[in-house]
């Protein structure tokens, strides 16, 4: 059986070659795209898709993922700890035959997860929830962000002082008076703490207390001070393009790594595993042979 409706062995190899090119571009892009936390903070503080579209980091991601070949990115929904990103015209969908009506874009899920975790410092659980190969107009990915990591990014030392003071028994107003915050800043901080469920009904919630307990010990709290990657985007885009071309060239020159083997010489590991004892013996024999 040819996997996933690929028509021939050549199509399987071509699909693997295209995926290798995309993976090469993804690895290069992620390696070059570390984002300073002040930029990530603006990104995750956005409350609506329109706000998010205007953030520099979002525009950078849009360009980056397009240049990799993952398609035209947009945002469809924003929650406190969840984002829904869509991708149209993705090269990934074209790799797989259409007839199977399955989700196919695991490479995009992995790329998003690695980008959020390695470049933004936000561990993320990414799942494709709609796919063009399953009949949807775009592929949509749900990005679940780890709440404690979001707190670490969104809340600053003033917020932490307010939480600490409230845990010590003071009200929100008493806490901000102690810190001499003006009214507009106090309102802003109150709305942020409420939005993220750190305070409810003028008390620090269970999650607020948990955040206070662990404070900066969970993630690197140091403010990083380096330019954002979009400052030199043309260089990054150039490197992605040349890496992908190199991968394509390597893929073409390795066409001769296809060979024919005699099926009679092949051991099916699955069949051997069904005969549990003989499989154990097979492995033991191979290990012994290796030792000899």
């Amino acid at each position: 059986m040819t996997p996933y409706g690929f028509k021939s062995f050549a199509e399987v190899v071509a699909g693997l070659g295209k995926l290798t090119q995309l993976e090469t571009a993804i690895s290069k892009a992620i390696e070059q795209s570390k984002v300073p936390s002040q930029e990530t903070r603006k990104f995750i503080k956005s409350q609506t898709p329109d706000q998010l579209r205007n953030v520099a980091l979002f525009q950078f991601m849009k360009e980056l993922f397009k240049d990799i070949g993952l398609g035209e990115m947009d945002v469809s929904r924003v929650d406190n700890f969840k984002l829904y990103l869509s991708f149209a015209s993705s090269q990934v969908c074209e790799i797989y035959p259409k007839q199977n009506k399955k989700m196919t874009c695991y490479i995009t899920s992995d790329a998003l997860s690695r980008f959020f975790s390695e470049d933004l410092g936000l561990p993320a659980d990414v799942s494709e929830i709609e796919c063009c190969n399953k009949g949807s107009p775009t592929c949509i990915f749900e990005i679940g962000l780890q709440p404690l990591a979001v707190y670490q990014m969104v809340l600053d030392s003033v917020d932490r002082s307010i939480i600490s003071s409230m845990i010590d028994g003071k009200s929100f107003d008493e806490s901000i008076n102690e810190m001499s915050l003006d009214k507009s800043e106090a309102e802003y901080r109150h709305s942020t703490l409420k939005r993220y469920h750190v305070i409810e009904e003028e008390r620090v919630t269970e999650i607020g207390k948990t955040y206070h307990k662990y404070g900066g010990s969970l993630f690197n709290e140091e403010e990083d001070n380096f330019p954002p990657p979009w400052v030199e985007y043309s260089r990054i885009a150039g490197e992605i393009a040349s890496t992908a071309s190199f991968a394509e060239a390597v893929s073409e020159t390795t066409d001769d790594s296809t060979e024919e083997i005699n099926e009679k010489e092949v051991t099916s590991m699955t069949e051997e595993a069904k005969k549990s004892h003989s499989f154990a013996e097979l492995i033991a024999k191979k290990v012994k042979e290796g030792e000899n």
């Binding site: 995926l19 993976e23 690895s27 797989y96 399955k102």
Partner: peptide, 19 residues
């Protein structure tokens, strides 16, 4: 080459209906 194993994973996952 890590990208080749990543690519293999991406090729196989739709075949086996995901991870």
């Amino acid at each position: 080459r890590a990208e080749r194993l990543w690519a293999l994973r991406s090729l196989i996952l739709p075949i086996i209906n995901g991870d």
